[in-house]
Design a protein around this nucleic acid. Sequence first.
DNA 1: CCCTGCGTTTCGATTTTCGAAGCGCTCGCC
DNA 2: GGCGAGCGCTTCGAAAATCGAAACGCAGGG
Lengths: 144, 144
Amino acid sequence: MSNPKPGEPVRGSTSGRPLMAALDLFGRRWSLRIVWELRSGPLGFRPLQKQCDDMSSSVMRQRLSELMDAHVVRQLPDSRYELTALGRDACLALDPLARWSQRWAAELEPEPARHPDDQAATRATRATRARTVGEGAVEGGSAD
Amino acid sequence: MSNPKPGEPVRGSTSGRPLMAALDLFGRRWSLRIVWELRSGPLGFRPLQKQCDDMSSSVMRQRLSELMDAHVVRQLPDSRYELTALGRDACLALDPLARWSQRWAAELEPEPARHPDDQAATRATRATRARTVGEGAVEGGSAD
DNA sequence: CCCTGCGTTTCGATTTTCGAAGCGCTCGCC
DNA sequence: GGCGAGCGCTTCGAAAATCGAAACGCAGGG
């Protein structure tokens, strides 16, 4: 499978429009999840794998190389993986989706078996949306 | 394939956390694309298919039922498909990703074969980010 | 009547993902 | 030194998702 890059054709679009490349990159299974799980700091291969509900290592390696190729993730000298500046931005761009999912859950049913962590994002939504979730981010719990 | 819903386990996560369900739903090929292409109004089946680079009709039907199941898309009496309120919100949540892809393209190389439509989002980024791209949205061009 | 476009289904071929096993390595420990 | 545990990563067959082309019945127009 070829790694999507803005400016050249990708799976499902010959135009090379950046968003289409991004949609290709992130539309692959586990891509978004990996970025999401790296948001709170570098992780090694196996720890990251565990974090991602024990996704298969083969796919994980594939995704990681794609993401590194896209300069979204980078590998530390100690071989752990971390988000690049670009990657952190992508994670930030993912934030609205996290909040949307809350609304989605709420809209689909009144009492959908709350997960403890779910409170954080809800609070964040209500909170003063001043400043775009500055650097430190993740204030407190995970917004999954 | 089972349709992801917040509150119950999904592919790759037993927790039922809303974001994981959303990641499952949108992590499937073409899901995001379909939402994106519906952002500027209802479309019939074949027209939508063409818009999505002629994706295979079988998968399109599958995605559409999943999205309808998730109340993100609804079918009009004249059988065209349109975003629900929830769907439009999802599309809005997708907007930061569209802008990110611009930055991504810019960062990866200086001159990556610009597509005419690409200008819109760039402009939007620079523009007064006041109010979250209010209802009317899509002002003018497509931000792909 | 015929042609075109529509929404939708079906089915075999291809691609992607899974999942378990294994490799070589490093580290701490007895 | 020998041992076990954890690591990053690869390989490979099986299962699942996706593709792509064909077809169906239906509507409308010429």
